[in-house]
């Protein structure tokens, strides 16, 4: 609204103070679990609570690398395998599909777009039971594959819908120039169009990864062995068993946030573009 309007120095300081206050209040929960993860169990239950750790305790982090119930390192690796694989499936399938939708006018195209739109709005509960039965029959139950395949169903429609806008915005002339240079439709797609739509591909990769990284329902339902489960299911399991071990629980939470935070710090512009284009254009 006031984007270009000059504001006085005094106003600037006032706004900055309010902004910092809002920041502190809204992100307090994140600060709070971080400091809690560095406290001793005794200090966590202390009243009044301490707002930073008086005794620095890194045992909750170290325990994650050791074997036993508190080992989350393995779950973390499981989550990485699941999220990266499901991201790759989503990208490999969604990139050509979105290109096909953006550049060719075939029959039934509108219906296909509509199908992708509707699957994006699907509640997980609808797929849970039938996929559970299906994976049992396919002998994929209790393997990484079950969760990888299921997680990709979230990434694919999102990626197709985002990427089709990227491909649609590439001028036809670029493609034609590639044909003159001796490319056919497939090599032109791979050598010329995908590199141009790289930004969009990154956005889709990030979101497909994040969807799979954050999934609990599929990982918890389709994988039963604790050693194969993703970290979200590991945390849930741990909460059930050691519900008041908050030093460990908050440390798990912090570790789970790390990849998200890294993506967030280095790729913020992609996230905002993904959120806005994905949501508004559906």
């Amino acid at each position: 609204m006031d984007e270009d309007k000059k504001i006085s120095r005094k106003q600037n300081i006032g706004y900055c103070i309010v902004a910092l206050l809002l920041f502190a209040v809204l992100l307090f929960p994140l600060y709070w679990i971080f400091v809690t993860s560095l406290k001793t169990e005794q200090e966590i239950f202390q009243i009044p609570p301490t707002f930073w750790p008086h005794i620095l305790n890194d045992a909750s982090y170290k325990a994650q690398l050791q074997s036993g119930d508190f080992n989350m390192f393995r779950s973390f690796a499981n989550s990485l395998i699941i999220a990266i694989s499901s991201m790759l499936i989503a990208i490999v399938l969604a990139v050509p599909a979105s290109y096909g939708i953006a550049k060719y006018n075939f029959k039934g195209k509108k219906a296909i777009i509509l199908g992708f739109l509707v699957t994006q709005m699907l509640p997980v509960s609808v797929l849970l039971t039938p996929l559970f039965i299906m994976f049992k029959n396919m002998h994929l139950y209790n393997t990484f594959w079950s969760t990888i395949l299921a997680d990709a169903t979230i990434g694919i429609p999102f990626s197709v819908l985002i990427l089709k806008n990227y491909f649609a915005s590439i001028p036809r002339e670029l493609e034609e120039a590639a044909y003159i240079d001796g490319c056919n439709r497939f090599t032109a797609f791979i050598r010329v169009l995908i590199p141009i739509a790289k930004q969009g591909v990154i956005v889709c990769g990030i979101f497909s990864f994040l969807y799979a990284w954050g999934d609990l329902a599929y990982g918890m339902t389709f994988i039963i062995d604790q050693e194969k489960r993703p970290i979200t299911a590991g945390i849930f399991n741990f909460m059930g068993q050691y519900g008041t071990k908050w030093s460990y629980l908050t440390a798990f939470a912090v570790v789970t946030i790390i990849p998200v935070a890294l993506i967030f710090i280095f790729m913020q512009k992609y996230i905002i573009s993904g959120m806005t284009s994905g949501a508004v254009k559906g």
Partner: peptide, 16 residues
Amino acid sequence: LLMMPWMIPITVTALI
């Protein structure tokens, strides 16, 4: 930075 809460796995948010 205020976008962070939206990105975090919901299991973690629930724990927090």
